[in-house]
Design a protein around this nucleic acid. Structure first.
Lengths: 217, 217
DNA sequence: TAAAATATTTAGATGCATCTAATTTTAAAC
DNA sequence: GTTTAAAATTAGATGCATCTAAATATTTTA
């Protein structure tokens, strides 16, 4: 069907498209894919020939409907494998990404539908991100960044924005985990840092942290 | 570490080496890999440069110790994934091969050791083939081809040689499965076909069948 | 053992994904 | 609104795995 590289580009465009107002720029894609702008141009042309993206020279790139569908299927696979690794193989949430990056490219409809069933149709991956269903539909959670809460507000931790190993290990160390209740006790005007309560614990966290934690109020 | 193609060549050489008395020939490898002899020569040179095989022009190719180890690790992964697919994801034994061909190339030590644990350290795959351990050691079963049994002899079905979907479906249809007891009731001198008893059932089978079933007496 | 047949290797080309260096287009600054 | 800076594209090259066609070894056959 599609090559490894093509699938990775589609995924990258999908992720960048969410945050961008206009089309995804060549440079942004090059940064995301850890490659050169000229390589991006080449690949984007190929994806355009296959009608996976809409591309006009110098105007950035957009996913087509079929490109979006394909990207969502890859993301579905990635997140299902992450659930498998954590729930069945005792991986920690900071260890799953790399391996899932490989597993997501295995081509078998049956494999994924059976895996989904085996995991009992999970709705979210270990980082709180929604898992698209076979049709590509998924719940868009109404979530807020912790940094946007005011003093006195309380919510549940439903996801993380930064999924780097370093950040996740920091969270583990401080017993900050999905599903826990967080209350904002104080907020420092100067640097935006917060004093928060997580269940029984109190903790001061910087904006590096509060900007990467999603809360549902 | 090694490319997809390199890994597949190592595996192919390993399988052909078992049956061959001398080195594996270029043509045999080309046949196994579904490619041209010239492509084989190129790849074999590359593997030789990496000390994975021993190769002298026109003399065939042998796995080196490190090549053998690598091949066994790939086979280990392939067979563990097959067990997973059958036992956890409800695949049938004729459906697993293709998917396992892809899964076997995922690169993660932890993934495989955890999978092994999750499956409770299986010793054989769904076709009865032994699963090498992390060191590459595996049990060599004392098994005989069904075609080598004489009238009156009884044994247990411990493996299949042909793992094609067609053959496995034929076995399923006739309720011939791993672990079942088989008795040779009669053998036709003319064409080698046999009348066998499998548990309660009686069945006449051709040499196409008896040459592809392994029995432990 | 010389000729014929078969097997294997070499030489040169292709497609894919990538790169560097040079060019062109667009956006920003003055 | 030119000029300058930044972004994007093109042209041409590289490495990998493969191919075809031609050349060379080896094995078989007469």
């Amino acid at each position: 069907m599609f090559s490894l590289s093509e699938e990775n580009y589609l995924k990258a465009i999908f992720h960048l498209q969410k945050h961008a107002k206009a089309g995804v720029s060549t440079n942004a894609l090059a940064e995301e894919m850890q490659t050169k702008a000229s390589s991006v141009t080449d690949m984007v042309k190929k994806l355009s020939d296959k009608n996976l993206v809409i591309y006009k020279k110098y105007q950035g790139v957009y996913l087509s409907e079929s490109g979006r569908k394909t990207a969502l299927q890859i993301i579905r696979k990635h997140r299902l494998w992450e659930v498998f690794l954590v729930e069945k193989l005792d991986f920690t949430w900071d260890e799953v990404h790399e391996v899932a990056e490989e597993l997501e490219h295995i081509k078998s409809e049956k494999l994924i539908s059976e895996l989904d069933k085996f995991l009992d149709y999970p709705k979210r991956d270990p980082h709180g991100d929604p898992i698209p269903d076979a049709e590509g539909d998924f719940q868009v959670a109404n979530k807020t960044l912790l940094s946007d809460l005011s003093i006195g507000e309380t919510g549940t931790l439903v996801g993380v924005k930064d999924t780097s190993s370093e950040f996740l290990k920091y969270l583990d160390k401080n017993k900050i985990a999905l599903g826990k209740t967080i209350e904002v006790l104080d907020k420092e005007e100067f640097d935006g840092s917060m004093l928060i309560r997580i269940e029984e614990d109190r903790l001061r966290v910087s904006t590096m942290v509060t900007n990467n934690i999603y809360i549902k109020i």
